[in-house]
Design a binder for these strands. Structure first.
Lengths: 304, 304
DNA sequence: GCCAAACCGTGAATTATTCTCATGAATAGG
DNA sequence: CCTATTCATGAGAATAATTCACGGTTTGGC
């Protein structure tokens, strides 16, 4: 790098020289360790001294004693060189796909509960990967994926487009949750019209994204009497248990809560409502180890 | 520097390029700022990428987007380059027979007022030392000290760790400020429950760092009715004088303002609330005379 | 006290690296 | 569709780094 204004002068290799001289006590020994000649080091230091306009060390007999300026530079060397070395190691790990950050985007509320079960084991296997979960996307999950705001999208609605892959990683059944003792609680399944006088509780998202409407109520041309929205699963199920309404959630999620709350799950329609969770990622990232391993691990996680 | 084992690869000028590209958005613009051609930068980056075995950025149309490896290097650049630059400045000053610069970090708002009183006399005694005050720290004051972003930390909360020394330099009393004519104004001291209907005005920092909470309200299990935050001491005391709330500040600070504003200071609790200001510095710098002299001078400054 | 060994410094020659120039390919915007 | 802008590339010129060869000093042993 040719310097015009004489500003940048201290280079990494100057610091390497200073450190080696301190460690080995002489230019000659430092030169050997750096696989260079003593002359090369001498020239390099002399040039640095000219640019800094101050000696870095003083010859005392055949010893070198660092000047105040030299000590400063030595301190700089001992602080900065390890950082260079550490960064080189990290970048090499990134290059090999062993390290990085995985930004996961979520498009469905209960997906979050599922994700938590995958993230735990994943962090064990990939201690050098940071996982970051995001939930709000200005241009939707696909937009976030294309815009590189996230690397992985968790969604129940794969939207196939060139450049992205979707993999199905989890099959489950969406069920209706009712309080124990509800008039429907002992039925095997429920039909839309049976809910015409009920209050339905959902997460606060657009109706088009709620399968309970698009796949259950609307095809039967009926709706529930009231529709309330609640942010959190816990409160939602507390409300259901208290008889304030019914809700549609994954069966595995309901089963977990049913241990502590008086609630029951019912099939939605005679055949039930099967659903899947998909993971989407950019095709270009297919070869990134820590990403494809996440997808693989996600597929393997099973539920007892 | 000819490298044998292919290890040292990231050079300062690579970091300069990365930083310039981030700042100016394009290779061409970066080249101009560095007084080089676009071609030179392109070659340099390409070589770095070959050595690291990973791209630093990806061309997307005519935009460059940093890869994870690139972002890592960018972080390195932003951390290391300022240190190179500071070291160069400092060495040049040493070369000119000057002493360098003392970078002082502040962790408490009113400390600033105190510091101003010390800096004046200090600059008289050490005409060739520059004093620079910094107030924002990404990793806290201690982080800044260890990271060599500052040389001296002014704080009311010394956090003893190996490698740093703290010295107590100033004892003072924290008092409650109320407007003249306030119902408490003629009391000798105030108890927490007497403030239960008041508005408390503080600097905008975390509650855990406010002694008025940790040492006054919380032990008595009560809180003020409202809590407002204000950046500047002047406005804060204007608000108090106008009857909009009460505040807790050092007595010496209140006394100064009380000459011009209708405000009064009260002891916090019967015994008052004693506080101290500490100066922290790296142990290795203990022998730096212009630094230890600052600490000594700070201890000697008295208040009339 | 003297000599050999171990240092560091210097100039010239050599080798390696960096930079520029000229050019091509891709892309966004008019 | 054309133009202006941007990055990439190869070749050659310019610059910088390194070695070689040698000279001067210091140190310690004999």
């Amino acid at each position: 790098m040719r310097i015009i204004h004489g500003l940048a002068m201290i280079e990494r290799h100057h610091l390497e020289i200073l450190r080696a001289v301190e460690r080995h006590g002489s230019l000659t020994a430092a030169a050997e360790q750096l696989h260079l000649t003593q002359s090369a080091l001498s020239h390099a230091v002399r040039k640095l001294e000219q640019q800094l306009d101050t000696p870095v060390w003083l010859r005392e007999g055949r010893q070198l004693r660092f000047t105040q300026a030299g000590s400063q530079l030595l301190g700089l060397a001992n602080r900065l060189l390890p950082q260079f070395e550490h960064a080189e190691m990290q970048v090499r790990q990134i290059a090999r796909g062993q390290r990085g950050s995985l930004r996961v985007g979520m498009e469905c509320h209960p997906c979050y509960q599922w994700l938590l079960k995958v993230v735990g084991p994943y962090l064990q296997y990939w201690p050098d990967v940071d996982v970051d979960v995001k939930q709000e996307f200005q241009f939707g999950g696909m937009g976030a994926l294309f815009g590189h705001d996230i690397d992985l999208l968790v969604t129940p609605d794969p939207l196939h487009k060139p450049g992205v892959c979707f993999e199905s990683v989890f099959d489950y059944e969406q069920v209706l949750v009712v309080p124990e003792g509800h008039s429907l609680a002992d039925k095997a399944w429920v039909e839309p019209h049976q809910l015409e006088k009920e209050t339905l509780i959902t997460y606060p998202v657009a109706v088009e994204r709620l399968d309970i409407f698009t796949r259950f109520f609307l095809p039967a041309h009926c709706t529930p009497a009231r529709h309330k929205t609640i942010e959190t699963t816990d409160i939602m199920l507390q409300m259901v248990a208290a008889g304030r309404g019914v809700s549609a959630l994954p069966r595995w999620l309901v089963d977990e809560y049913a241990r502590n709350l008086p609630i029951t799950a019912l099939k939605l329609g005679k055949e039930g409502m099967p659903k899947q969770i998909f993971l989407g990622f950019r095709e270009r990232d297919e070869s990134v180890d820590y990403l494809s391993e996440f997808v693989k691990l996600a597929r393997e996680v099973r539920w007892g």
